[in-house]
């Protein structure tokens, strides 16, 4: 399901989801509250997404919508998307949302993510190509991984352009030149 070579994709699947077991399972220690090495039907456990996904595909568990997509977050993002600290709620907010939407059967997730990203995109755009690093450091504490990638892409292209415009040494000295020849004896 995930992209095998994408570290962000792997980390996004580490996010915890709370699930309710529909079937019992013996010999597994994934429920920390249980006394024995087993899981009772109906027990609630927080599992990383990659495990919950596989269990869900086998209809062992049902998933709940994680807290970072709850009604309160939606209201906050609707009110002032730029000021919401998504980083602390879920670093991989958008990726995680895309992954979990079909599993919890949330039909509005796509448009919700899109509107959240659209609101926050303007803020990233306004800072990305112009602001100095110190001015933007407050913004950076609020952004999710995807938004930070976006911001850094803009920053690095701007920095490369400035470097080119200012010039600097046009001719690079080959590293072999100027090295003293070692005496052979």
């Amino acid at each position: 399901m995930g992209n095998y070579y994408d570290i962000d994709d792997i980390l996004a699947e580490e996010e915890l989801v709370s699930v309710v077991f529909q079937k019992g399972a013996n010999g597994v220690g994934i429920d920390p509250s249980a006394e024995a090495y087993s899981v009772e039907p109906g027990s609630k456990v927080k599992l990383p997404f990659w495990l919950a996904y596989e269990l869900h595909a086998r209809q062992v568990v049902t998933m709940k919508l994680p807290a970072c997509f709850n009604q309160q977050t939606r209201l906050e993002l609707g009110a002032d998307g730029k000021a919401v600290d998504l980083r602390s709620r879920c670093l991989y907010f958008y990726e995680f949302g895309c992954k979990i939407a079909p599993l919890v059967g949330d039909r509005d997730m796509g448009s919700f993510l899109l509107s959240a990203f659209r609101n926050r995109y303007q803020e990233v755009l306004a800072k990305a190509h112009s602001a100095a690093y110190t001015a933007a450091s407050k913004l950076l504490t609020l952004l999710t991984k995807e938004e930070i990638n976006l911001y850094e892409a803009a920053q690095s292209s701007m920095a490369a352009f400035k470097k080119w415009r200012m010039g600097g040494p046009r001719l690079q000295r080959a590293s072999v030149l100027g090295r003293k020849r070692k005496s052979t004896d």
Binding site: Y94, C98, G110, L114, R118, Y121
Partner: peptide, 11 residues
Amino acid sequence: AFYKHGSPELV
């Protein structure tokens, strides 16, 4: 990102 979140698979 816009494309991904707006893709009809999710919506």
